Simulated scan of single mutants.
Amino acid sequence: MIRTVVRADADDIAAIYNHYIKNDIATFEEEPVTAADIERRISAVVPELPWLVYEDSGSIMGYAYASKWNPRSAYRYSVESTVYLKADVKGKGIGSQLYSALLQKLKAQNIRMVIGGISLPNAASQRLHEKFGYEKVAHFKEVGYKFGRWIDVGYWQLSIHESG
């Protein structure tokens, strides 16, 4: 089931995200987060923008949300999309379901542009974004340093604006 996040999800979300902080370059954060940190992040997004979770048998398997691309008012129709899954459920279509639901909600809110930043290499994330029509528009070399190495970041964008 995909639903809107609630405060009680913060512990599960922190556990999912902390796996990536400790073991992956998908995020450039290096210190684990707490449930309170996640609650603050949720409050910064909801209700203005969607934050969704995928729940199965009472357990959060993943989450996706949109955040402001830039706080300046002229950017109000552009957002950044984010998705994270429990490590053991990758490749089961949950990320696609979350992104599909997130994009539908953003389109209903008259968002025009959705931007996804991807630490590289990350073939799975690239495939997910490109599956939904995101196109690569930027590549920044060696902008992050984690696990003793320099990491590139690519940016993909998707127009969800209907012309006419």
Rank of each mutant, 00 (worst) to 15 (best):
Y84P: 07
L49G: 11
L52F: 12
P47E: 10
A36W: 00
H161T: 00
N23T: 05
S163T: 11
L158T: 05
Q126I: 13
I160V: 14
V114Q: 12
Y20L: 04
S81D: 15
L103S: 10
G95M: 01
S78M: 12
A101I: 02
L85F: 06
A36G: 07
Y17H: 12
T4I: 07
G144N: 04
V83R: 05
S67R: 13
R7S: 14
V143W: 02
S125A: 11
Q109G: 11
A74T: 08
T34N: 03
R127W: 00
Q97F: 01
V89I: 03
Y17G: 10
M113D: 13
R3Y: 03
K90T: 13
M1N: 03
V153I: 15
M113P: 00
M113F: 07
D37G: 08
N23L: 03
A101R: 10
A10M: 08
I38M: 14
L102G: 14
A74L: 03
Y145D: 06
V45A: 06
I13A: 09
A124W: 06
D12S: 14
K105R: 14
Y63T: 11
E80N: 15
K136M: 14
G117M: 05
I16C: 02
V6T: 13
I60N: 01
A87H: 13
A138E: 09
I13Y: 02
V6Y: 00
L49A: 08
K146T: 04
